[in-house]
Write a protein that binds this DNA or RNA. Structure first.
Lengths: 198, 198, 198, 198
DNA sequence: AATGAATGAGGTTTCATTCAT
DNA sequence: GATGAATGAAACCTCATTCAT
C-alpha cells in the first residue's frame, strides 16, 4: 500500500537519494573536480537533466553532503555533552567514550567523512570547530586539576583532532585496527605520554 | 660565456626556474586543478608553448615540485640521524631537535610543504614514509627502555606526523607560535601526556 | 451547472485563460526566448504537462496572443471606417479620431501590443498591414485634394505607423503624455509640418 | 614585407575580423539568441575554442558590434555639427544633409544597424540619444523662429527618429528608394506637413 | 483535468596541449 | 629559445517537451 509498485523510476525521492549516495561515493573517491555529473547520472540510470531536477548544481549536491556530515556530527556531539560525574578515575573512560564515538561515526560514515572532514575546503572550518569543542572539554578538565596547568590546551586539542583524522585514514578505514583499539591507544598516549614511569 | 646574445634576455634556465617558483605559489594557493598553465606563463611573462619547452605536462611540473620537497626533506632527515649518545636525560632534547628541524623546514618551505605534504595525492605516501622514519627512531628509544613497552609505536609515530601537519597549518603558518614554541609544546605532550602527576 | 465536482477547483478554461494572461505578461516583459514555460506554469499554479493540455507548444501560445492582438486591432479598425462626411474642415478631427483610437487601444492593451506590435517577428507584417490601411485612407484624402499631390503617400503612412509605435513606447506607456495629447501633437506635426507660417 | 604570405590561419587579426564580420551577419539575421557560436566558427573555418581566443563570450562579441555601431554613429554625428550659416533658406537643405548622412550610414552599415539600432536591447538607449541629439538641433532652429513655437519638439524629434528607423527597414534596405529619395520625402513631410496649401 | 518524473537536443565555455614558424 | 594561432575533448547546464498514471 502507499507508493509501492511504481513503474520504472516513478519515485523521485528514490532517484534523488540514489544520486546523493552515488555522489557521496564519487566525491569521496575522486574529489570534487574529478567527479562528473555524467558519471553520477549514468550510475543512477538517468539522464543529465534528471540531475538538475533534484539539485541546482554540482556545488549544491556537494554542499548537501557536507551539510549532512555536519548535521550528523553535531547530533553526535550534542548527545555526548553534559557529563556530571567528574571523578578523576572516570576521566580516561569518559574521554575514551567521547573519542570512541567519533571514531565509530567516522567508520560508519566513511564517504561523508572523506568528503567533509578530510578533503573539502570546509574541512578546515569543521576541524576548527571540533578542536574548539575538544578544547573546551579539556579546559574544564584542566580546571579540575586533572591536567597539567603549564600546557597550551589548544595545542592539545589540535593534536587530538589531527590524530583522529590521521588514524581514521591509516588504521580505521584500512581495517588495521578497530575503533576501540584506536581509541584506547590514542587516549593512552595523549593522557600519559610515551615515557615510561616506574 | 653562458647565456649571451640571446633575444629578449632569454635565459632558458631562468625561465624554467621562474615558472617553477610561480607554479609552486599557484599550486600551493589554488591546488592542482585550479592552477592553470595559462596563469603560470602569464605571470612568468612567457607564452604557453614555452612552458612545454621545459616541462612535458602540468603533471610533470607538479611532480617536480613534489620531488623537490622530498629531496629536501630527505636531505634534512639524513642529516639528523646517527645519534649516538643515547642517555635518558638527553632524550627530550634530541627529540625536540628532530621535530624542531622539521618544523623549521616546513616554515621555510611553505609552498612546497603545502603542495607535497598537505594537499597532494602524494602526501599520503610522504607522510607514510615520514611516519616510518619516526617509528624507527621511536622503536630504538623504546628498545632502550625509555618508552613504555605496551604502546603501539606505529600509532605514536602517526600521532607525531599528524600533529606536525596540523600545527604547521594552524599555528606555524599563521604565526601564532614560533617553531620553537610549537616544538616544545608538542614534545611535552607527546612524551609526558596531559595528566598531571605529583 | 458549469464546472462542478472537479478536483482542486479545476476549471480548464480558467487555467487556460490564466496561462494566456501570464504568458502575455511574461512575453511582453522578457521576449519570446527569455520566457520559460516553467515560469508560466509556476505562476499559474499548475504543472508543465498541464500547459500542453491547452497549448500544443510555446510557439502556439505566443501565436495565440498575436492573433488576439490582430483580431482586436482589426475589430477596432473595422469600426472606424465608413466616414462619409468628408469636408475639409473635419479632416484633422477625423484623423485625430482614427489615431486616437489606436493610441487608446495600445494604452489599454500594453502587453499584447508589446508582444505583437513592437517585438515580435510578426510585427513587421502587422505594421505593414496597418500602413496599408492608413495609406488607403490617406490616398482617399489626397484624391479629394486635401493633401499635396507631390507626396509619396506610402511614405506618409509609414511615418504615421512608426510614429505611433515610438510614441507609444516613449510617451504613452511611460505616462509622459496622455493618448489625447500624443494624438493631437502627432496630427499637428504630420498635417502641418514643423515650419512656421505667417 | 610585413606579415604577408603566412600559411593557413597564421594571422590572428584576420580570424578575429572574419568572426566579427560573420557574427554581424548572423546576429543581424537571426538575433542574439538564435545566433550560435558554433555557426560563427564553422563559417570562419575554425573550432569553437578559437572563438574564445578573441572574444571572452558571446555577449562580448555582440557588445563589440554594438560599440562599433555607436562609435561610427557618433563619429558621423560629431562631424555634422556646428553649422553656422543659419539662414532660413538653407534650413531644409541642412536638415536634409543631416538626415541624409544618417540614411546613407544606415544603408552602408546594414548589419550593424540592424543589430544595434533595430533589434538590440540597447536600441532603446541609442534611439533615445539620437532623439536627444535631434531635439537639440530642432530646439535651436525653433529658437531662431523657423519652427512653430506651439510644438513639443521632443515629439518632433521622436517622429524623426522613428521615421528613420522604419523607412530604413521598409524602403532603404529593400531598395525601394535610394537614401536621397527617402531623405527628401521625409524632410518634405516633416517640415511642411501633408496638407496642401494654396 | 492534471501530475510526478524524465528526457533529447543543444548551448556556452574551459583548459591542457600542439603545430608551424 | 620562443611564439602566434589553433585544437580535442569534455564539462556544466537549460529548456521545451513527453510518458505513464
Amino acid at each position: 500500500m502507499g507508493a509501492r509498485g511504481r513503474k520504472k523510476g516513478a519515485d523521485g525521492e528514490k532517484s534523488r537519494k540514489l544520486m546523493l549516495q552515488i555522489a557521496a561515493e564519487e566525491f569521496a573517491k575522486n574529489g570534487f573536480h574529478h567527479t562528473k555529473i555524467s558519471t553520477i547520472v549514468k550510475r543512477a540510470g538517468v539522464t543529465q537533466p534528471a540531475f538538475y531536477l533534484y539539485f541546482p548544481s554540482k556545488e549544491a549536491i556537494f554542499q548537501e553532503l557536507i551539510d549532512q556530515f555536519i548535521y550528523k556530527l553535531e547530533e553526535l556531539i550534542g548527545d555526548s555533552r553534559l557529563e556530571s560525574d567528574l571523578t578523576f578515575d572516570s576521566l580516561p573512560e569518559r574521554i575514551e567514550e567521547g573519542l570512541g564515538a567519533i571514531f565509530t561515526f567516522f567508520k560508519q560514515n566513511e564517504y561523508l567523512t572523506k568528503i567533509a572532514f578530510i578533503n573539502s575546503d570546509y574541512a578546515c572550518k569543521i576541524k576548527e570547530q571540533l578542536a574548539t569543542q575538544i578544547e573546551e572539554n579539556l579546559l574544564v578538565e584542566q580546571s579540575y586539576g586533572y591536567f597539567r596547568s603549564d600546557l597550551d590546551i589548544r595545542i592539545a586539542a589540535e593534536i587530538v583532532v589531527s590524530t583522529m583524522e590521521r588514524l581514521t585514514v591509516t588504521h580505521l578505514w584500512t581495517n588495521q585496527k578497530t575503533d576501540e583499539e584506536i581509541t584506547e591507544e590514542t587516549v593512552q598516549i595523549i593522557l600519559n605520554g610515551l615515557i615510561k614511569r616506574e
